[in-house]
């Protein structure tokens, strides 16, 4: 696999799994208005994942759906941050805030990359992500004074740093006003390792598809 395909899959896996996790709030968020808002964010993320998979799929001679569903659990390259099962609202918003901050840096880097196809998609994604960032900031302001929100930010910070490749991490630390965690702290959150709940999520998301292999749905 080329470096390009690997990078596309990493990004696509993050967006897909996060979209999956965010959609777990549909119907049970603190406000009905938030059910609707969070659901749109989740749909955008899955839409981004699909577009990224499509580029990778052309290179790998497969399809977006096959990449999204038919790989083995250890072939997914998602960062552990996006894999955590529906957490409480404080941790969900903390992940949302941290992920959007990291993602902004990642998408900016892609927009400036020499790869025209990827840069074009990144620009489109960024225009949608802008609304996610507004949503994240609104909630960050609302929850700022809540100790459980601050605790969730601290707890998730190393996993958020691990979303980005090493060269982009200092920028995230600078923008969020936080210190980079030590390498030993980062180790458990690096890509390639998975969150504890990952196997269960994979089982669930591929369940229907595996039930009749090769079928159209």
């Amino acid at each position: 696999m080329t470096e390009r395909a690997r990078a596309l899959l990493e990004y696509a896996d993050d967006e897909l799994i996060l979209g999956w996790r965010d959609s777990e709030w549909t119907g049970v968020a603190p406000f009905l208005e938030e059910d609707v808002a969070f659901s749109s964010i989740s749909q955008n993320e899955v839409g981004h994942a699909r577009a990224l998979y499509e580029i990778a799929a052309r290179e790998l001679g497969t399809t977006a759906d096959e990449l999204a569903f038919d790989r083995k659990p250890d072939e997914y390259r998602s960062a552990p941050l996006v894999e955590f099962r529906r957490m409480d609202w404080a941790a969900t918003i903390a992940r949302h805030v941290l992920y959007e901050a990291a993602d902004e840096i990642r998408v900016e880097a892609l927009k400036d990359s020499g790869d025209e196809e990827v840069a074009g998609l990144a620009a489109k994604m960024d225009r949608e992500e802008a609304y996610h960032r507004i949503h994240a900031q609104m909630w960050e302001e609302r929850l700022r004074g809540e100790p459980r929100f601050q605790a969730a930010l601290d707890e998730l910070w190393p996993a958020a740093v691990a979303v980005l490749p090493e060269e982009l991490r200092p920028e995230l630390a600078a923008r969020t006003g936080r210190d980079l965690p030590s390498n030993s702290l980062l180790l458990a959150h690096e890509r390639g390792s998975h969150a504890e709940e990952w196997p269960a999520l994979w089982e669930e998301m591929t369940e229907v598809r595996r039930s009749v292999p090769g079928a159209a749905w």
Partner: peptide, 14 residues
């Protein structure tokens, strides 16, 4: 939503 078998179905169901 979690179990929808294609990306398009997942999006439509969400």
């Amino acid at each position: 939503i979690l179990r929808a078998p294609t990306l398009q179905r997942k999006l439509a169901l969400t």
